[in-house]
């Protein structure tokens, strides 16, 4: 057996510079966000899905009927983040929440900037806070905030 090896450590970053093409449906959804409008897609059973699904969950048929929904909604479940990490979009404590937008049947995962955990509750009403510089991304909705 040789002598003890040195302990060698090194930090490194592995980066993937993905550019995704958004396709006809998600592209329209993102273009809408850039105009501060939120759209869902109507599924074969009549439900409105936000963000839009490209294919029907039941029949797998391609979907293309976009439906405008409100930028207000109801929190259906949430989780408080006490210590945000560097890559989170808010520097202070916030909630990850499922928000069912008015006019939609399926909730959307996003942030709720409620200030304090005691301000959060299931069933609370929230409204989108829009980015000052929307550019066609889900983060054009900066977060939701209590109404």
């Amino acid at each position: 057996m040789a002598t003890q090896p040195e302990i060698l450590t090194k930090s490194f970053e592995l980066g993937y510079t993905y550019t995704r093409s958004t396709g006809p449906l998600i592209g329209r959804f993102l273009t809408g966000l850039r105009e501060r409008r939120i759209h869902g897609v109507r599924a074969s059973d009549g439900r409105v899905i936000v963000p839009p699904a490209e294919y029907d969950p039941q029949t797998a048929a391609a979907l293309d009927e976009l439906v405008p929904v409100a930028d207000t909604g109801t929190v259906t479940t949430w989780c408080w983040v006490c210590e945000p990490l560097a890559h989170h979009l808010l520097p202070h404590p916030f909630a990850f929440a499922l928000v069912r937008l008015d006019g939609a049947d399926v909730p959307l995962l996003h942030l709720v900037d409620a200030g304090d955990e005691t301000a959060m509750r299931t069933g609370m009403r929230v409204r989108a806070r829009w980015s000052d510089d929307p550019r066609g991304s889900i983060t054009d909705i900066a977060c939701f905030e209590p109404v």
Binding site: L8, T9, K10, L14, T22, R28
Partner: peptide, 20 residues
């Protein structure tokens, strides 16, 4: 209209070489 998005993924590692 939006046709593409930049979605870079950066993974930060702290690598420790094993004995060998």
């Amino acid at each position: 209209p939006v046709t593409g998005i930049e979605v870079p993924i950066n993974l930060k590692y702290e690598f420790t070489a094993g004995a060998a």
